[in-house]
C-alpha cells in the first residue's frame, strides 16, 4: 500500500469516494506513467486533467513554442507564455496544479529515431498531435512495442478518438495509410472550434484514467466520433483488420521509418 499523506487524501478525496476508484484506484493513478505527445489543443486538457488526477509521471514531448493563435484552445498556455517552448509552459502549469506529479519534458519532435526510446518507460501513450505522418508513427511504434495508446483527432466541429490495446484494432486497421499530403486540411486552414479540443482531450484523459484504474470499458475496438453542431455522438464498432500493414496477418511494417511526409504544408504560415 502506498502511504498517502492527509493532504493527498484530501486532494484526491473525490476519486477516493468513487466506488470504482477508491484508495486502490488512486494508488494506481499515482503509480501511473503516461506520455503525452503534443502539448497543443488536445495535449492541453489531457495534461491538465492527468496532473490534477495525480498521475505519478507525466512525460510530454513537443517541439513547438507557444504562439498567440494557440491560446484560443490550448488552455494550458497563458498569454505571458507566448514565445516559450510549449513543454516548459506545460510543465510550469502542471507543477502549480499538483506538485505530486513528476514531469519529464522533451522539447523535441517525436520521430522514428526516438520513438521507441521515448515510449519505453510509459504505461500509456496519448496522441495529441496534428499531422498524419506522426499519428501513423505513434500507432506503429505503440503496436510494435505493445503499448496501449489513445488516438485523437479534431477538425472544425468534429472530433474522433479510439483507444488501442495490444490485440485490439489499431489506427492503421481503420486508416491504412496517411491521406495524400494536403488532402485533409489542418486546423490552421480549416479552423477548429476551441472547445472541441477540450471535449476530445477530456475524453482521452478519461480513457487514460479508466485504463490506469481498470475501470469500465475502454474505446478499444470502437471509434467514437462526434459533431458539435448537432452534438451527435456515434461509436463505430471496429475489429482488427486482417490486412492491417502493422498488426494484420502478414505485417509489412516491422520497424519504424521516417514519417512518410515530413511536414504538413498546410501548417506553414
Amino acid at each position: 500500500m502506498m502511504d498517502f499523506t492527509p493532504e493527498q487524501i484530501e486532494r484526491y478525496s473525490r476519486h477516493i469516494l468513487l466506488q470504482d476508484v477508491g484508495v486502490e484506484g488512486q494508488e494506481k493513478i499515482s503509480n501511473g506513467k503516461v506520455l503525452v505527445i503534443g502539448a497543443g489543443g488536445l495535449g492541453a486538457p489531457v495534461l491538465l486533467y492527468l496532473a490534477a488526477a495525480g498521475v505519478g509521471v507525466i512525460g510530454v514531448i513537443d517541439g513547438d513554442t507557444v504562439d498567440l493563435s494557440n491560446l484560443q484552445r490550448q488552455v494550458i498556455h497563458f498569454t505571458p507564455d507566448v514565445g516559450k517552448p510549449k513543454v516548459i509552459s506545460a510543465k510550469e502549469k502542471i507543477r502549480q496544479i499538483n506538485p505530486d506529479v513528476k514531469v519529464i519534458a522533451h522539447h523535441d519532435l517525436f520521430t522514428s529515431e526516438n520513438a521507441f526510446e521515448l515510449i519505453r518507460d510509459y504505461d500509456f501513450i496519448v496522441d495529441g498531435t496534428d499531422t498524419f505522418p506522426v499519428k501513423f508513427l505513434i500507432n506503429d511504434a505503440c503496436v510494435i512495442a505493445g503499448k496501449p495508446f489513445s488516438h485523437g483527432g479534431i477538425l472544425r466541429f468534429d472530433g474522433q478518438t479510439m483507444t488501442h490495446l495490444p490485440q485490439t484494432a489499431c489506427y492503421r486497421c481503420v486508416f491504412h495509410s496517411p491521406p495524400p499530403p494536403n488532402a485533409v486540411p489542418a486546423c490552421s486552414q480549416a479552423g477548429v472550434l476551441g472547445a472541441i479540443a477540450g471535449m476530445l482531450g477530456t475524453i482521452q484523459a478519461a480513457e487514460v484514467l479508466k485504463f490506469l484504474t481498470g475501470t469500465g470499458e475502454l474505446l478499444a475496438d470502437r471509434l467514437l466520433s462526434f459533431n458539435a453542431k448537432t452534438m451527435n455522438f456515434r461509436t463505430v464498432k471496429l475489429h482488427k483488420n486482417r490486412q492491417c500493414p502493422v498488426c494484420g496477418e502478414h505485417p509489412v511494417i516491422t520497424e519504424l521509418k521516417e514519417a512518410e511526409q515530413t511536414a504538413c504544408d498546410l501548417k506553414q504560415r
Binding site: 503534443g38 497543443g40 504562439d67 495529441g128 483527432g153 463505430v236 498546410l266
Partner: peptide, 13 residues
C-alpha cells in the same frame, strides 16, 4: 456501411 473520415488536428496547427 460506415464511412470514417480522417481527422488530424490537435497540436499546434
Amino acid at each position: 456501411v460506415d464511412i470514417l473520415y480522417f481527422m488530424g488536428g490537435g497540436q499546434s496547427s
